[in-house]
Simulated assay, not measured.
Amino acid sequence: MSHRRLVLVALVLIVVGGLGYAGLRTAYHHAKDQRDLADLTRTSPWPREQLLVPDGVTRPGTVGWLERGGLDIAYPLRTADGRAVPVLWRLRVPQPATGLPDGVDCDTPRLRTCTDLGGRGTLIVTHQTDNSDPSTAVYRTDGGRVRAIEVQGPDPVEVDDLIAALTRVHPPSDVELLDLLRHDGYQTDWS
């Protein structure tokens, strides 16, 4: 074999080997993502296709948790006046008696003020107590789920901004769910 042929054969072997390695690596990462997604969503009260997330939620500073009680997402809500206010958006399992999530009770007027917004939901203002900061939240029953959004502390947010965050939702893609739920340092047995 001539020197040129040897170089050409070696080059072809390197290219084919590199493509094979890239294909195997892509398949490995895809399989790992699917295993991680299955692990991160296994305790969900709903199938993945029934989950909802607010539009535009995957931006820096966003983190989510999914467990037996539902999905919680902490993110900076962009308000109508351009501010980015930290909020907690939730998709929770409702209590049978009230239709609100566990721990939310409108029967304590000194602690909470509840206002029925009709089809738009329930506005709940939690007043400052010894163990919690004041907060404003809107809850909306959605079949066997309750959507909620809450802002704590002194940053006022218009009710219409909160309602918009509850209304503008979509089912997340697998990539969005992984971005929300797979936090830094997350490891599985196969990581």
Results as ranks from 00 to 15, higher is better:
Thr126Asp: 13
Arg110Val: 04
Ala97Met: 14
Pro154Ala: 15
Gly118Glu: 03
Pro154Phe: 11
Asn131Gly: 09
Arg140Ser: 13
Pro134Leu: 01
Arg120Glu: 15
Gly153Val: 06
Pro94Thr: 05
Arg92Phe: 07
Asp155Lys: 12
Thr122Cys: 02
Val157Thr: 09
Thr141Asp: 06
Cys114Asn: 08
Thr113Phe: 00
Thr141Ser: 11
Gly99Cys: 03
Leu111Tyr: 05
Asp105Lys: 02
Asp107Phe: 01
Gly118Thr: 01
Arg110Phe: 08
Cys114His: 05
Pro94Asn: 08
Val125Phe: 10
Ala97Trp: 12
Ile124Pro: 14
Leu117Cys: 05
Gly119Trp: 05
Ile149Tyr: 07
Thr108Ile: 05
Ala148Trp: 01
Gln128Lys: 14
Glu158Ser: 14
Asp130His: 08
Thr141Asn: 09
Val138Gln: 09
Val159Arg: 14
Thr108Trp: 07
Pro134Ile: 00
Ala148Asn: 06
Asp130Leu: 09
Gln152Phe: 10
Leu123Gly: 12
Asp133Val: 03
Thr129Lys: 11
Ser132Tyr: 10
Glu158Met: 12
Pro94Glu: 08
Gly143Met: 04
Val159Thr: 15
Val151Ser: 15
Arg92Pro: 07
Gln152Met: 13
Pro109Thr: 03
Pro156Asn: 12
Arg112Ile: 02
Asp116Trp: 01
Gly143Phe: 04
Pro134Phe: 01
Cys114Trp: 04
Val151Tyr: 07
Thr129Met: 10
Asp116Met: 04
Arg110Cys: 01
Gln95Tyr: 00
Leu123Trp: 12
Asp130Gly: 12
Asp116Cys: 03
Thr129His: 13
Gly143Asn: 09
Gly121Leu: 07
Pro94Val: 06
Asp107Ala: 09
Tyr139Leu: 03
His127Gln: 11
Pro94Gly: 10
